[in-house]
Amino acid sequence: MNIELSEEAAEYGRQALEAFKAAGGDGLVQQAEAEPGHRAEQVAPVLAELGAWDLDARGDADELEAAAALCRSAGYWAVPYPVAERLARPADLGTDGLVVVAGTAPAGAVAGLDLRWTAVTPDGRRATAAALPPAAPPRESAFVTGLALTPLDEAGAADAALGLVLPCWTLLGMLDRAIDLAREHVLVREQFGRPLAQFQGVQFQLTDAEVERSGLEMMARYALWSGQANLPEALDDALALRLAALEAAETVFRVAHQLHGAIGFCDESPLSWISRYSQPVRRLPLGLSATRDLLARRLGRHALTGRYGDVAERVTS
């Protein structure tokens, strides 16, 4: 198995980063919060320009990898638009996007967009979903709103896996950014007559965060490959990825905030925005313990196969 992203996908991701930056960068989410009604107008043209809607994440490996790279770049700038959800749209239902839901109060960060949604539960039950009017402004809700579901079928196991994996790539991009921001901050901010980065206590925290982030990156590639290879345990791998992503996010954001000091809690610091808008991905459809619980139940008697397991070897050989 080769879980490296192709050079094309990596290059596409870099282009996307530049395109989002040119379109406003950090300003995108700030504007969207100020004028939630215009959030699609800001971002959708950039995505169209990047050919995002021509990407078939369910097609070949190249396209799936490009989709993942795009999600990651969108996360880097906290792009206020459900990029991963749109890229995960079901193949057969003619809707615009896919949201994984769980529990009695289905919700997604899809407020105020004129789009048709499909919802899928982790066990593959699909429904048509309509976004309800948001109960709170984005400042408080980060664009999360309730979904009204009309049950459809039970054919969504693959949907659920893809629908879980792509948002983890978005979150990975957010962690990339949080680490970059923390790194830049400690290099520039001086206390006691020298840059914070010169204190080993600061360096070690950042390295711990980086270890978490790179571990997550490996998991993200593996789960992508597992879904692409149609492994029977693709959904378990997607849940394991989600678990790793949520754990990594906790460490990375805790460290990034701690190293920023008080400024990290203020709107003038991009970290505050990234951290706030990372909340929906981290809470929906399942938080840390619920994800862990579901994964544990599903694994039940068998364990994760993983990169070096027998089954994986058989599939690739």
């Binding site: 109060a105 109960a135 809470r283 938080g287 313990s289």
Partner: peptide
């Protein structure tokens, strides 16, 4: 508080 957030689940995030 982290544990409280975990256990409270989704509902906690609608408590603004």
């Amino acid at each position: 508080t982290d544990f409280g957030t975990e256990v409270a689940g989704l509902a906690a995030h609608t408590e603004l």
